[in-house]
Simulated assay, not measured.
Amino acid sequence: MITGTSRGQGEAAQRVFAEEGARVVGCGLHEGGAEKTAALLRDDGYDVQGYTVDLTDPGAARNWIERGAESLGGIDVLYNNAAGFGFAPFSEMTIELFRNVLRDELELLFNTTNPAWKVMLGAGGGSIINTASYGAMRGVARFGVAAHSAAKGGVVALTTALAAEGASAGIRVNAISPGFVDTPATAAAMDDEAREWQLSKHLIQRPGRPEEIARFAVYLASHEAEWVTGQNFSIDGGVTAGFR
């Protein structure tokens, strides 16, 4: 089960997982988007379903998880890819914006992971992959990321806590922290000047591709990673390693 499959990294992940032989149930916030990307993959012969779901609604998220578990006969993998965003200088940040970012980037994970956790407990395990950000490890003054960094730091902490709690039940939990990746969401969040500034901080000075993140998620989901849990992996062109 993959969230945010109507576009960007989630759409790429849905295709990469399907090409690896997975049966996929996706979802997206924008009306009809996840259904459209799933239909395109079904036309190519893959077993993929997609639904429009507002994951900030705990009941809607739970229903999506339960519907997917019933359709798939269980849940082997939950890839929490979807997230909203919100940026502002801290002096201008309102409590409403701060709470909205925490809801859209951290609470959202609880809404999907809690019901999926219960399914995995009953089935002897599974793999959960969360999407964090290099903003969880580094401050970025230019974009006003205090709320984003707080939320994604919470994602990393939640990942390690669940990895510890789930280990005895065979549940592995890991996180991926992407750098600047070319997606519709990043295009909407910054102008050309901001984009160039971002790229200048990466050791490999090009944007990441959504499929590059997706392939690493496939690894974390696979049996090849069965001894890997509680980790946060930076797939970021080297931005957290240093500057050129």
Rank of each mutant, 00 (worst) to 15 (best):
G124D: 00
F90S: 15
G28I: 08
E66R: 10
E105F: 03
E211G: 04
A150V: 06
A60H: 11
G8T: 10
A18M: 05
E35F: 08
G208C: 06
D104F: 01
T183D: 02
R62P: 10
H30G: 13
L121P: 01
F143D: 08
F110P: 02
P178K: 00
G170N: 06
Y134L: 07
A169Q: 09
F87V: 05
M93T: 12
R15N: 08
V239S: 02
I176L: 12
G242C: 04
W227L: 14
S200T: 11
E19S: 06
A34D: 12
T160F: 11
A136I: 01
A185N: 11
W197Q: 08
P178F: 00
A175W: 15
V181W: 02
M190L: 02
C27A: 14
R142F: 06
S6L: 08
G21R: 07
M137P: 00
I75C: 04
R142T: 08
T52L: 13
P210Q: 07
K118S: 13
E31Q: 13
E212Y: 07
A13S: 10
F143Q: 08
A39E: 11
I129K: 01
Y219L: 07
F17W: 04
T52C: 13
I176G: 02
L55H: 06
E31R: 15
F90V: 15
V155P: 01
L109Y: 11
H202E: 10
V77Q: 03
R7Y: 10
G154F: 00
R206N: 06
G28K: 04
G153E: 04
I171R: 01
V25C: 15
D192M: 05
A82V: 13
D43F: 02
R206S: 14
L29E: 05
L55I: 14
T3A: 11
Y51M: 13
E212F: 06
A22E: 00
S133I: 04
P184D: 04
Q205Y: 06
S127C: 03
T186M: 13
T186H: 07
M137L: 07
I65N: 12
E92Q: 12
A34S: 15
E193L: 09
A161S: 15
G135M: 00
L55P: 05
A60N: 11
A39R: 09
K152Y: 03
I129T: 01
L108R: 04
A241W: 09
A116Q: 03
N63E: 13
D43C: 01
G8C: 11
E11I: 09
R215Y: 05
I2N: 05
T56C: 14
A69F: 08
E105M: 10
D236A: 02
A69P: 03
Q198Y: 13
A157E: 06
E196T: 09
